[in-house]
Design a protein around this nucleic acid. Structure first.
Length: 1000
DNA sequence: ACGTACACCTA
DNA sequence: GTAGGTGTACGTC
């Protein structure tokens, strides 16, 4: 190798993971073999070999090698045993692709390099330094920060996904330090993925700042005493040794023994037939064609080579589409049984592509739309009605449009529309590649307050009264698919403007169905970073935050366009990535039957709200304040001083420091625990003060969280309280409720129940509360197939008493309540993935006694143990478990080497199918409820208001209570049918009253 | 102004 | 032992 040569080093392992996660869609060969990462890898290699000059690398390689990790056991493990310890197993679909990518490398006639005991990064470092010493340029194909320490004027990195070269200035921009300081920076920040410890509390920003100040890690550690911030100083002093170990871990070795010399990496000519044979075997039609063109081969004359892969079972869960025939209003659009919304086929006008298979073509086009770089120059502001009409016509032509609204509030019930954006996949403009065009339509922007025209409507905006009818045409047209992120918000907003969104998809719900429980949330920013490798403009960068925060109507229209159009653009790309996975992963029916149809149902419930009686709450608040004040006096007297009772820290110091009480526990941060359990124990030992504290806490909790906070949520116009339900924030499929949370209104104590009396029906109406009885135990009896439980539920006997009778051989008649209480705790424990530790805590008994109970339980109900074991095994093998309706819940950490993390995941995986199936049942009931009420002629007379996991609350005219109750009960009891015919009956209790307390 | 810990409300 | 959300205190920026 000599001066002027150019060595390309591909980080093969890094690329595999990156391609797998970034490259949509989940491409599969016709036999089901997943090959998405292989495809990305081959395309990238081909491009580098043939046209690196046209990319931002700007030069063609003379030498080339692809480097892989050999095994997980490397010298780093000897330095630090936990290194990479919490790395979870690769995704199932990726496993067969590791071997394939090595095959691909050989098919390209390229050296494929790995060395036992070293990571790919060390091999890359060694080659890079050697080549540099020979005067050659080096390009490392990777964007991994671990390699950035290698960057010099001669050594660059290249991010092939983003077509971006990474040189010294890029490293400084990204991390705040030059490449040679990356080692020290990484040593300080650590790395949770590789389990490099670092120094707690030090992130990249702080680390860069410290390096700026002290120069390097050793100086910093030597002079740590000079750091002003106390916590930070302590952390650094205490963890100096960890930082030094971390530095060893992140420092790449440049002395790896190499089998192949630099000169052996010289680029050999392509072996066309060999490569084409491989590509044909992979069914990469378009790349095959390109390679054949380039080497003047006749692809048709070359046979696909034989490629062996390790690949097992591709079976999937139940396909409910076949079983169902009743309940179907999909996305507000009536769809023929079994039908889905159209797959993301984007019409192509490019002649050169017409030869390919339509399905393949659609996939490629979708992939190219989704991965083409985000380009703000494709965004426009629409200020003219004719232009808007043209865009809507284009949307109608394509049939698919991503949509987003900008408003004055995060609360859809209070928000006013300020503008809307949309994005269309368009390939007319640029025949060489995919273009997503996006536009923002400002409607209600105002001039800034500092402006001369302060507060008035800004010029050159389409009037709302002109825009709304156009919007209505678009949003209500069932032949145009609307795509939004968190669509319930837009649905509710538009409904308040008299528009009923029809025919839609929600990217948040797609992600929730596909990746529920897998790492990460389903918010747009996180999805965009995960799937598109793009960080969208942050809302706070547009509207400010905190004190300087403004509502969106005051945002400058150009800034608003960039932000809003990008959101629509990103949403469309996410849909292109996620939607095809639905069918490929057999999750279409979960999405179409359990998720999407719930959007309008929940929007309607939120819009209705519920009335609260402010007088009742205000009176309660006064009583609670008086009670708390009286207790405060007593507490100060008993403690001998005044202190902040609400501060656990101060309280702990008083009880266990000053008063020197025994029986204290420490929390995980080393503070004295003052939990109710601890205080109860002290009270039981005859102490007065702890009892008073417990009582004080109850009163102040009820006051601050409920009686004082709830009136603040009364809507100024409707005078009702409108909660917001989240469809995608639990792992199990339950809903969650917030602002306010109406799923945790007190019920356990008499004091707390008074708050429920403030939830009232409108005059002339009743509230009906209908709740499932023991739904989770019934689900358990069904999924685990337990004959005694099934019989007990069929006979309608007391299930806890039955359990007690089986376990302790006590007759049900005249059973002591303590015996039943223990059996009840065990039944709950089973649902929660029982442990002796937890059961002992719950019942205040010894661990060994709790262990005996569990043992006896499993002897009586061996099927339950079988269920638990097989569920854990399934979670371990597949990475997920399923509800009876096929919803998947992922457990990426279930193979953790940390025993407590693993045990936690095992318990959660046992609970998820039970809790999740129950959640699916009530979802189905909610979806079926509206049509059933319409069919009974009760539409609008019976209004579903709230859901509390196993309970539905309705508001009903007095005269209709008797007629509607059996309908509600019947819909709920039959909700699992016909998709699943459960082996136990579902039972629902319903009651009507003027307030929630009495109805419950 | 924002994030984390603790405590406590629900199913 | 499962799944959530919210209020207060308190630390850091």
């Amino acid at each position: 190798m000599k001066n002027g040569d150019h060595l390309f080093l591909v980080d093969g392992s890094g690329f595999i993971f990156r391609a797998f996660h970034a490259l949509p869609p989940l491409t599969r060969k016709s036999d089901g073999l997943p090959v998405g990462a292989v495809s990305g890898f081959c395309n990238m290699l081909w491009k580098l070999l043939t046209s690196a000059r046209d990319t931002s690398v700007g030069d063609t390689p003379t030498h080339f090698a692809v480097i892989f990790d050999y095994s997980s056991k490397t010298f780093r493990k000897d330095i630090y045993n936990a290194y990479k310890a919490n790395r979870s197993a690769p995704p199932e679909e990726l496993i067969p692709q590791f071997g394939l990518i090595r095959e691909a490398t050989r098919a390209f006639n390229l050296p494929c390099i790995e060395t036992d005991g070293f990571e790919a990064d060390d091999i890359i470092a060694t080659y890079a330094r050697q080549a540099e010493a020979n005067g050659a340029d080096v390009t490392i194909i990777s964007s991994d920060k671990d390699l950035m320490q290698l960057v010099t004027p001669m050594v660059h990195m290249y991010d092939s996904m983003k077509d971006k070269q990474i040189g010294i200035p890029d490293v400084i921009e990204k991390w705040g330090v030059p490449p040679e300081k990356m080692i020290d920076l990484q040593a300080m920040t650590g790395d949770s993925i590789d389990n490099v410890p670092g120094i707690p509390g030090i992130g990249p920003k702080t680390a860069a700042q410290l390096l700026e100040e002290f120069g390097d890690l050793d100086t910093l550690l030597a002079r740590a005493g000079e750091i002003k911030q106390q916590k930070r100083r302590e952390n650094i002093v205490a963890n100096a040794e960890l930082a030094r170990i971390s530095r060893q871990l992140v420092t790449l070795r440049t002395d790896v023994p190499l089998e192949l010399s630099l000169d052996a990496l010289v680029l050999e000519p392509q072996n066309g037939p060999k490569l084409i044979g491989f590509l044909k075997a992979m069914e990469f039609t378009s790349l095959t064609r390109r390679v054949a063109d380039a080497c003047n081969c006749d692809a048709a004359a070359i046979e696909a080579s034989e490629v062996k892969v390790e690949w097992g079972d591709t079976a999937h869960g139940p396909d409910l589409d076949v079983a169902e025939n009743v309940d179907l209003v999909a996305g507000g659009r009536v769809v023929a049984e079994g039908a889905s919304v159209p797959a993301p086929v984007v019409k192509s006008r490019m002649a050169s592509e017409s030869a390919a298979e339509p399905a393949e073509l659609a996939k490629e086009r979708a992939a190219s739309f989704a991965t083409a770089p985000i380009d703000h120059s494709t965004y426009v502001t629409i200020r003219d009605l004719a232009v808007l009409d043209q865009w809507i016509a284009d949307a109608r032509e394509t049939g698919i449009v991503a949509f987003d609204t900008e408003t004055t509030s995060l609360d859809a019930m209070q928000a006013e529309i300020v503008g809307f954006s949309f994005a269309i996949a368009d390939n007319r403009k640029d025949p060489s590649g995919a273009v997503i065009r996006a536009a923002y339509v400002p409607l209600g922007h105002k001039n800034g307050v500092g402006d001369l025209l302060g507060g008035g409507l800004a010029d050159n905006q389409i009037p709302l009264r002109d825009a709304l009818p156009r919007l209505k045409d678009l949003l209500e047209d069932i032949s145009i698919l609307k795509i939004a992120q968190n669509l319930k918000y837009d649905y509710l907003l538009m409904k308040r403007y008299g528009i009923e969104l029809k025919a839609f998809d929600d990217t948040m719900l797609l992600s929730y169905v596909l990746d529920g429980g897998a790492n990460g949330t389903h918010g747009m920013d996180s999805l965009s970073e995960r799937w598109l490798g793009h960080k969208p403009i942050a809302y706070k960068d547009v509207a400010g935050s905190g004190k300087s925060n403004v509502t969106f109507d005051l945002v400058d229209i150009d800034r608003a366009t960039a932000y809003a159009a990008e959101d629509a653009d990103v949403t469309l790309r996410l849909w292109l990535v996620l939607k095809p996975r639905l069918a490929a992963e057999k999750l279409t029916s979960v999405y179409e039957r359990l998720e999407r149809p719930l959007v309008p149902v929940l929007a309607h419930m939120e819009e209705r709200g519920i009335t609260i009686d402010r007088q009742i709450l205000s009176r309660l608040s006064g009583e609670l304040a008086q009670g708390a004040a009286a207790l405060e006096d007593e507490i100060y007297r008993l403690a001998g001083e005044r202190f902040n009772i609400g501060s656990p820290k101060q309280l702990g110091d008083i009880l266990f420091g000053k008063m020197g009480l025994a029986g204290g526990n420490k929390t995980k941060t080393g503070q004295w625990s003052t939990s109710a359990q601890v205080l109860e124990d002290l009270a039981a030992a005859g102490l007065e003060l702890p009892r008073k504290i417990v009582d004080w806490r109850q009163l102040t909790k009820l006051k601050s969280t409920y009686t004082d906070a709830l009136p603040g949520y009364v809507h100024p116009e409707t005078k009702r309280v409108h909660t917001s339900y989240s469809l995608a924030s639990t792992t199990t499929g339950r809903l969650s409720s917030s602002e306010p949370n109406l799923q945790n209104i007190p019920v356990r104590t008499a004091e707390g129940r008074k708050i429920r009396t403030a939830f009232i029906s409108t005059p002339g109406h009743k509230l009906i509360s209908a709740d499932y009885s023991q739904i989770e135990l019934r689900v358990l009896a069904h999924v685990a197939n337990i004959p005694q439980l099934e019989q007990a539920f069929a006979d309608g006997v007391d299930i806890h008493a039955m359990t007690a009778s089986e376990m302790f051989s006590v007759p049900i008649e005249g059973m002591p309540s303590e015996v039943r209480r223990r059996a009840k705790a065990i039944n709950f424990g089973i649902i929660y993935g029982i442990s002796a530790f937890g059961l002992a805590n719950q019942l205040s008994i010894e661990r060994s006694e709790a262990g005996d109970y569990i043992k006896r339980y499993f002897e009586r109900f061996p099927g339950i143990r079988d269920y638990m074991e097989s569920t854990k095994a399934a979670a371990r093998d597949k990475g997920y478990v399923e509800t009876i309706f096929g919803r998947r819940v992922h457990f990426p950490e279930i193979r953790s080497s940390n025993p407590s993390v693993r045990a936690f995941n095992e318990r959660a995986s046992i609970n998820a199918p039970i809790q999740g199936s129950a959640a699916d049942v009530i979802r189905r009931a909610m979806i079926k409820m509206e049509p059933a009420l319409v069919a009974a002629g009760l539409a609008d007379r019976v209004r579903m208001l709230l859901q509390v996991h196993d309970e539905l609350i309705f508001e009903v005219e007095d005269a209709d209570v008797e007629r509607s109750t059996p309908i509600i009960v019947s819909v709920m009891e039959n909700a699992a049918m016909p998709a699943v015919n459960m082996s136990v009956p579902l039972k629902v209790d319903a009651r009507a009253a003027n307030n929630w307390d009495e109805a419950h």
